[in-house]
Design a protein around this nucleic acid. Structure first.
Lengths: 343, 343
DNA sequence: CTGTTAGCGCATTCAA
DNA sequence: TTGAATGCGCTAACAG
């Protein structure tokens, strides 16, 4: 492995000159610069990250804390991980993953060993222990999702408004009996922001619209989905629409609906909240998409910006909390309920 | 940030003694060790990774090259990323992601800057440019998937046998006219190993079983899925089974089948190859699962082992190429075709 | 059983 | 416009 010394020797200059050429922090004559570049190319030199970091105290690495309920896997997590990695690269950062289940251990270890300059926390929950950890350490952090944390910058879809919007549109289409399929129980128990805010939105929407909105808890265990669904749809008066935030089981849900002999949307309207872009299953349905790309870019921007900023715990400047306004995907209006049938 | 010197001063010992306590590479008296541990705890000391790396030339980081066709996202990639991260942690490694689309740039940059000790390459293709890059650099690497590369260790599901097995079981159940839904065109064009091996398996199985196996190319564009499917199923004699390797669109596929008025499995058997564990959509169907956990653990093990080993380009020791034998998921036999109908 | 010291590769300060 | 020297924090060889 070539070092800066080798390059210097080859180019007939001092090591510091090579460094200056690389960093551009000093004016170098064309002649010298070209000689240095030639030597770099010939030797295939690349500066050692560890040396740079040791000297300069910057790693150009972000740590991404991926939520991980062992045995469960949410497609959205992988998708965010990849989009965040892309976004980070655009800022000159690499992304280091830590996947210990809500464990603060990995996060703390990486922060304290100086492996990263800042953290991005996915799927933030209320009273999130990871937030305590980074706060204690004064480690620059941006959040994907928000709970009740005080001073950290975050980005989130406005889940409360999203569910409200979905329910309102559904009610406006004429539906009076609506089932809201909330997030999985374990997500609610973990106090994930999106799960709690979604619930809140559903309750508000019920008040606002006067429609009956039956909030239906979801279980992660798909075995009971069929039963639960049958129960939900067997209620009288029969629901004519479902607003679904718990999307993991959507394909299965649609299959069960079909198995019950119900057609979507003629017999039952299905409206999605937080579906992934380009999801072929979601595409034909009225829905509010999760803007994964935008959220990833924004959360990375916040993380990168907080690297420089003193961690003064003041809550940060304005504009560091972004509640993204939801909107219905175009071209898929909520269909009306079936005409009332006698009986 | 406390350094090793601070700890040494606090504990009243030399810095090297602290180091020896940490690494355990020298016998230290109980009294001294306790004093050091106390000082470490009081100061909240954690060794700086960059200094260790600069000194010791090890990062304890693996770089994971995630395949990324912009605009496309495969759930399996995110799943592998997370499982690989878990597996790496079990070996004391962290995982750095690079997501540049088949770009060797990120990989090369990370390798040459010494940010990682070894690489894991996902979704290997034939004539994979990433392999040339790591080979040129002599960078320790393990592959997830295999193409035609010579000397690198790899792990892969035996896709050829998997598809053969799926088709054979289908034929054995009595089906004589089978459609094989191959991977997406762009995957075949990119010469991804799994896509090519799957195709080969389908051809062989056709020869072996004497059944008609119509190999049906998949398109990523879901708009035309319905048409394609209709064409495939309209052929005479009508196919009674589909073997599906292209699982991205499975939910949509099932929906289209249902829309055509066909029931699964009464009218049409659907057999999956390479489905994800715990996928609720796949669960009720006969299938060969992709052993994500095992593959992740194995590929990490290979990568970690190749860190120490001299990169002698000899092809490595035996046992560094693992073709995992496929098996049908238990409890889901391939159902027989419907009784022959006149016409 | 423990201390002293050199040096990993780089960016930067001081000197010219 | 460039060179020489220093030190970032750590580990291991050498010395006691």
């Amino acid at each position: 492995m070539a070092t800066i010394k080798d390059v210097a020797a080859r180019a007939g200059v001092a090591p510091s000159t090579v460094s200056y050429v690389l960093t551009g922090s000093r004016k170098i004559s064309d002649r010298t610069r070209e000689a240095v570049h030639a030597a770099i190319a010939e030797l295939g030199y690349h500066p050692r990250a560890s040396a740079r970091t040791l000297r300069g105290a910057r790693t150009d690495v972000l740590v991404l804390a991926v939520p991980r309920k062992p045995g469960r896997y949410r497609a959205v997590d992988g998708r965010f991980a990849i989009e965040i990695s892309d976004a980070a690269r655009a800022h000159g950062y690499d992304v280091l993953m830590t996947t210990e289940p809500d464990g603060v251990d990995g996060l703390r270890r990486i922060a304290r060993s100086g492996l990263a300059d800042a953290a991005v926390l996915m799927a933030v929950r209320e009273r999130d222990p990871r937030i305590d950890a980074v706060s204690e350490l004064g480690f620059p952090t941006a959040l994907l999702g928000h709970g009740d944390e005080p001073g950290l910058p975050w980005v989130d879809l406005d889940w409360e408004t999203a569910v409200r919007l979905a329910v309102r549109r559904t009610a406006a289409a004429g539906h009076r009996h609506i089932v809201f399929l909330a997030c999985a129980d374990h997500e609610i128990d973990a106090r994930r922001g999106y799960a709690l805010h979604g619930l809140r939105g559903a309750r508000e929407a019920a008040r606002e619209t006067g429609a009956e909105v039956r909030i239906h808890p979801s279980t992660g265990a798909e075995e009971r989905l069929g039963d639960r669904l049958r129960t939900a749809l067997a209620a009288r008066p029969a629901p004519t629409a479902m607003v679904v935030q718990h999307l993991v089981l959507l394909p299965r849900l649609l299959a069960e609906v079909a198995a019950l002999g119900l057609r979507v949307p003629e017999d039952l309207a299905v409206v999605l909240v937080g579906s992934l872009p380009d999801d072929p299953v979601a595409e034909p349905l009225p829905r509010i998409e999760l803007p994964v790309g935008r959220m990833s870019r924004e959360v990375v921007r916040l993380a990168v910006e907080s690297v420089g900023a003193a961690s003064d715990a003041s809550g940060g400047p304005e504009g560091t909390r972004q509640l993204i306004a939801p909107h219905m995907a175009p071209g898929r209006p909520v269909p009306p309920p079936p005409p009332e049938r006698p009986g």
